[in-house]
C-alpha cells in the first residue's frame, strides 16, 4: 500500500501531463498538476524547518564540535523569521495609511530589507565571487597537455580566454577585418569556436540527456524504477 498509492498517483499525473499536450481540454488540468506540486513543496517546508531546528538544537545541547555555528544558524533563522513575519520597520502602505501592517515586509526601510541589503547581498556575492579563485586553482591543476585531445582543449582555452577580453583584438588587429584572413582574428576565432564546435558538442550532449530523461521518466511512470520511493523492488 505504501508503494502502490504513490505509484498510481505518479502514473496517473504523468500520463495526464503527456496526454494534455495533445488534448487541449486537459491543458488546464495539467496546469493544476504543477500548482499542486508548488503547494505540496510549500507544506513540506515545515518538515525542512523542523529538521533544521532538530539538528542544530541537538548540536547545541550536545555541545558538539562547531556548536557555535549552530547557534548562529538558529539566531539568524529566528531573527529573519520574526522581522519578516511582523514587518518590523515597515512603512505604512500609501494606499491604506490607516491600516497597520499594510506595508510590504521587504520595502526599503524595513529591517528585513536591511538584512537583505547589508548581509544577504554581500554574502551571496562573495560566495559567487569565490568561483574566480577556484577556477584559477582548478585550471592550474587540471589543464595538462597529456595527450592530443588535451592539447586541443588547451588551444581552445587560449583562444577563448584571449578572445573574451580586449587582448584578443589587440593581439590580432594587424589582420585586416575585411580581408580573407579576418576569421583568424582572435575575437572572430573565439566566436567561431563558441558558435560551431561548442554548439555542436552541446547539442550532442543535450540530445543524449533528453533521451535519458525520456527513458527515465517512462521507467518511473511504468513503475519499473521505484528507487525514489525507497528501495529498488
Amino acid at each position: 500500500m505504501k508503494r502502490t498509492v504513490p505509484l498510481i498517483i505518479t502514473a496517473t499525473v504523468g500520463l495526464l501531463l503527456i496526454v494534455a499536450n495533445f488534448v487541449p481540454a486537459l491543458s488546464e488540468l495539467s496546469e493544476d498538476g504543477t500548482t499542486f506540486f508548488s503547494i505540496i513543496a510549500a507544506i513540506a517546508f515545515v518538515l525542512g524547518g523542523g529538521s533544521l531546528l532538530k539538528v542544530h538544537l541537538k548540536k547545541l545541547s550536545d555541545r558538539d564540535r562547531g556548536w557555535a555555528y549552530s547557534l548562529i544558524v538558529l539566531g539568524s533563522f529566528f531573527v529573519t523569521l520574526v522581522v519578516g513575519l511582523f514587518k518590523i520597520g515597515a512603512p505604512p502602505n500609501p494606499a491604506y495609511p490607516d491600516k497597520p501592517w499594510a506595508g510590504g515586509y521587504n520595502e526599503p526601510g524595513t529591517f528585513f530589507n536591511w538584512i537583505y541589503e547589508y548581509l544577504f547581498y554581500p554574502l551571496t556575492a562573495t560566495m559567487f565571487a569565490m568561483l574566480a579563485f577556484y577556477i584559477a586553482s582548478a585550471a592550474f591543476r587540471a589543464f595538462r597537455a597529456k595527450n592530443f585531445e588535451a592539447i586541443l582543449l588547451l588551444g581552445t582555452a587560449f583562444i577563448i580566454l584571449l578572445g573574451q577580453t580586449a587582448a584578443g583584438p589587440a593581439l590580432t588587429n594587424w589582420i585586416p577585418p575585411d580581408g580573407p584572413f579576418a576569421g583568424l582574428r582572435l575575437e572572430e576565432l573565439s566566436a567561431y569556436v563558441m558558435d560551431v564546435f561548442n554548439t555542436a558538442g552541446s547539442r550532442a550532449i543535450v540530445i543524449g540527456i533528453a533521451l535519458g530523461i525520456a527513458s527515465t521518466s517512462l521507467k518511473i511512470l511504468m513503475g519499473l524504477d521505484r528507487s525514489y520511493l525507497g528501495g529498488g523492488n
Binding site: I205, G208, I209, L211, G212, I213, S215, T216, K219, D225, S227
Partner: peptide
C-alpha cells in the same frame, strides 16, 4: 549526462 540517467538501470 545520459550516463547519470543510465545509473539506475
Amino acid at each position: 549526462g545520459e550516463e547519470f540517467f543510465a545509473a539506475s538501470a
